[in-house]
Design a protein around this nucleic acid. Structure first.
Lengths: 128, 128
DNA sequence: CTCCAACCTGGAGCGCGCTCCAGGTCAAGC
DNA sequence: GCTTGACCTGGAGCGCGCTCCAGGTTGGAG
């Protein structure tokens, strides 16, 4: 129930093998277990981190910041305030991102309606 | 009321001068007018295109696709269907993007609540 | 024991979207 | 006319986040 081969970890997390190795190399995932032969064994804990990384990545957090977060978590309990703050700041940026996306989506829809109001005749070249 | 110096076009569009030149170089903005001396003069029409490019860019459309759209528009009235379709496809991707962003934002908020439910004591290392 | 697919490493390469640079030109104000 | 800051060009460089490669090792199935 815990101890996944690299390919299985990749499948479950949705990251490629190369990306998993890359994440370990740059210190996002630290101390991934190994077999005696040196092959990686991912734990449920690792998988949990990967889920979090996906969340942060998909919301546009730069890798440097994820690294910082992961490092803080490794540093222990006394960093919870800082981690909390980091996530809150990020959440605020995400909210802004969502507002912008919504606004531009609305523009896009308006532009699309422009094409749908076209009955065949329109002077003027383009935008609007 | 039309005919903007490069710096003014940059200010109004929010793109850098370098980006404006880049957009022209790769054929997004075509045939920007020039003074006799060779300096660019942006029209209201150009500005309109830039607004559209910003919308498409902010919603994640790759430049290659914007180029395609711009080329279609230059090709004339008979491409309106294709342009419409292109924008619709894009809009669908944006909707998916918004759903994903919302979902991951929800995860993020949940994670943040985890920190806020912390009264000071918590066993286990991290995520969740 | 043999095979072969999955894995390992270090390091190079890539695709995107700009951004910066050198070295020169233009044009508005004094 | 001179100065000076905005502008021009072609091309190199960059930051990000992977992705690919060569050349070698591991380990489970048959």
């Amino acid at each position: 129930m815990s101890g996944y081969a690299p390919s299985e970890a990749a499948r479950r997390s949705g990251f490629s093998l190369d990306t998993l190795r890359y994440y370990e190399k740059i210190g996002l995932l630290a101390d991934v277990e190994r077999t005696t032969g040196g092959q990686r064994v991912f734990t449920d804990d690792d998988l949990g981190w990967l889920v979090l990384f996906r969340c942060l990545r998909d919301t546009g957090m730069p890798i440097a910041q994820m690294r910082r977060y992961a490092q803080l978590a490794r540093d222990g309990e006394h960093t919870t305030d800082e981690r909390h703050e980091l996530l809150c700041h990020h959440a605020a940026r995400v909210e802004e991102q969502m507002r912008l996306l919504q606004r531009q989506y609305d523009h896009l829809r308006e532009k699309i309606r422009f094409y749908e109001r076209l009955p065949g005749t329109t002077p003027g070249s383009e935008p609007d």
